[in-house]
Design a protein around this nucleic acid. Structure first.
Length: 178
DNA sequence: CCCTGATTCGC
DNA sequence: GCGAATCAGG
């Protein structure tokens, strides 16, 4: 899988939209494993995990199937080893109370004046996903996109957390001047 | 048995 | 870095 910048952005957006890993994976055309793997690799916020891994039992991974292996089969619910390892109850704290939503609207304030300066009167539409692309209630933002960006000004501010509207204004000025 | 997300580890 | 296999809870 090639994690392009666009893919990562989409992933992040869907992730922060509260969609399930499976949904995101389907929409991006990959397995949920790939999604969650990438997610935790790039450090996306963990969500409410149904489970809590109390320990690291160091599971024997699937046999590499080199040479011959006389058989052997790992059942779905393997357990009951003759090793009663006493654990000192390493309870993993589960604070994080809530609201997976709430986009991190920080420093980048977008004033109406900036918006007016940024937004062209015509051009491609904002590709910000609204809702679930697989269902009927899906929609795009559909505002006019910023020059060179797939999103409108508002959603650029959401897509790029380090988005600086002022620099964007500068860029637009440069384009208009040229 | 279905779903969910998390983690590990071979590649 | 990637993701399938696996774990684990509901």
């Amino acid at each position: 899988m090639v994690w392009t910048d666009e893919k990562v952005k989409l992933l992040v957006q869907y992730w922060e939209s509260g969609q399930s890993i499976t949904q995101i994976g389907k929409q991006l055309g990959m397995t949920r494993n790939a999604v969650v793997g990438k997610a935790h690799r790039i450090g996306l916020a963990k969500r409410a995990s149904p489970i809590m891994r109390s320990d690291k039992p160091a599971q024997p991974r699937v046999a590499p199937a080199h040479g011959g292996n006389g058989g052997g089969h790992a059942p779905h619910t393997a357990s009951a080893g003759p090793a009663p390892a006493p654990r000192p109850a390493p309870v993993r704290v589960k604070d994080e109370a809530a609201v997976p939503h709430a986009p991190a609207q920080h420093g980048n304030q977008l004033t109406p004046a900036m918006l007016a300066a940024l937004t062209p009167t015509t051009g491609p539409r904002c590709k910000w996903p609204i809702g679930d692309p697989k269902t009927a209630d899906f929609d795009f933002c559909d505002h006019v996109s910023l020059p060179g960006k797939p999103y409108c000004a508002s959603h650029c501010a959401q897509a790029y957390t380090n988005w600086n509207p002022e620099s964007a204004v500068e860029a637009v000025k440069a384009i208009n001047a040229a």
